[in-house]
């Protein structure tokens, strides 16, 4: 697999180790900045909007972990997002599980699917890898379409109860739920940051940049690829399951290939292979969807145009450009 991130955004992702402590401090400040913004956000804008952005940002962060730092372009991330969403909604509605257990069961199922799909997909490289993940995700889509007893078919699973967190705290109110979603999002962000900067993450980056060399150094690259694939699937599942609780809905949209395309777009716009890019990308794309909702299916055309423009002229993405300009990996 070629090095999609390193060819075009050399400032980002690369050489995280060798930089001075200033960058680490900057990242810490940015993390605190994001946390502060999340605390203020529900008082200045709609909590549901911010929750939606957080769910998709987590989804995009998970995808970016796989592509930006593992060099693996999966075009089937919707499978984990959507299936986790269904399992979470089903568990909360029909088994009466409390929200945290419903979210965990959704995430667990996404992890398992990621393990199976990942083990299959890493048998081929590059362009084939993308096609295989897309085809496997389409299989998950058809499964959802053909098992209306589980997924509710075209209607989806509606009116999912939000329930009581740990059986104690009522999160039916948006303001209460907001803090749960914010905690999940921050937890996911910190976990991904930790993974990227761990020895494991460094090996993944090495495999992304030069797989034969990593093999010759004695690394079992397929194991690393599988682990990063499963981690990405699990985090995508976490995002999907949380989304099901927020919107009290799991539907076919979440498993459709266009959802896989959307998360690619968010990551591309924000900055592939950057740490904070996917958050910016999710914010931009979700805002755009809200803003253009009245245009109906023109939204697809607009997304297509953004894709084309980004690939042609804006490969670094928003955060990638800032990183290049400030000469610091962000």
């Amino acid at each position: 697999m070629a090095d999609i991130a390193s060819t075009d955004a050399p400032a980002a992702g690369l050489s995280v180790r060798e930089i001075d402590d200033g960058t680490e401090r900057l990242h810490r400040i940015l993390m605190i900045g994001i946390a502060v913004a999340l605390v203020i956000a529900p008082f200045v804008t709609y909590p549901v909007f911010v929750m939606k952005v957080m769910c998709f940002a987590l989804f995009a962060l998970a995808f970016n972990l796989l592509l930006g730092f593992g060099g693996l372009l999966s075009f089937g991330q919707a499978a984990y997002f959507g299936m986790a969403s269904y399992v979470c909604a089903y568990a909360a509605k029909f088994w009466g599980l409390s929200p945290e257990l419903a979210i965990l069961s959704g995430t667990a199922v996404a992890t398992l699917i990621g393990l199976v799909f990942g083990a299959l997909a890493i048998r081929r490289q590059g362009i084939y890898f993308a096609m295989i993940t897309l085809a496997l995700a389409q299989m998950a889509f058809f499964f959802s379409l053909q098992t209306p007893g589980f997924t509710g078919g075209e209607d989806g699973i509606q009116a999912v109860p939000r329930g009581r967190l740990f059986g104690l705290i009522d999160i039916a109110d948006d303001r209460a739920l907001y803090w749960l979603v914010a905690a999940i999002f921050m937890g996911g962000l910190l976990l991904i940051y930790r993974i990227i900067h761990s020895p494991f993450g460094q090996v993944c980056t090495a495999i992304r940049d030069n797989e034969p060399r990593a093999i010759s150094l004695g690394y079992r690259t397929n194991r690393y690829k599988l682990v990063v694939f499963v981690l990405s699937a699990a985090l995508a599942g976490l995002a999907g399951a949380t989304k099901a609780i927020v919107f009290q809905l799991a539907s076919l949209t979440d498993v459709h290939w266009s959802m896989s395309g959307e998360v690619v777009l968010m990551t591309l716009v924000g900055g592939l292979g950057t740490i904070f890019g996917p958050i910016a990308g999710a914010l931009v794309i979700v805002s755009m969807q809200n803003f253009l909702a009245s245009l109906g299916s023109w939204v697809l055309v607009v997304q297509g145009v953004i894709f084309v423009v980004c690939v042609l002229t804006f490969r670094e993405g928003i955060v990638g450009i800032i990183a290049k300009w400030s000469k610091r990996p962000l």
Binding site: T7, S297, W298, V301, G304, V305, C310, V311
Partner: peptide, 24 residues
């Protein structure tokens, strides 16, 4: 001359545009 995956992303965007225009 860029990574081949960009070709996939570009043509994916084109597919969205073409399908969207005809659907509208």
């Amino acid at each position: 001359h860029f990574d081949h995956l960009y070709g996939l992303l570009l043509t994916f965007g084109l597919a969205l545009i073409i399908q969207g225009v005809f659907r509208n």
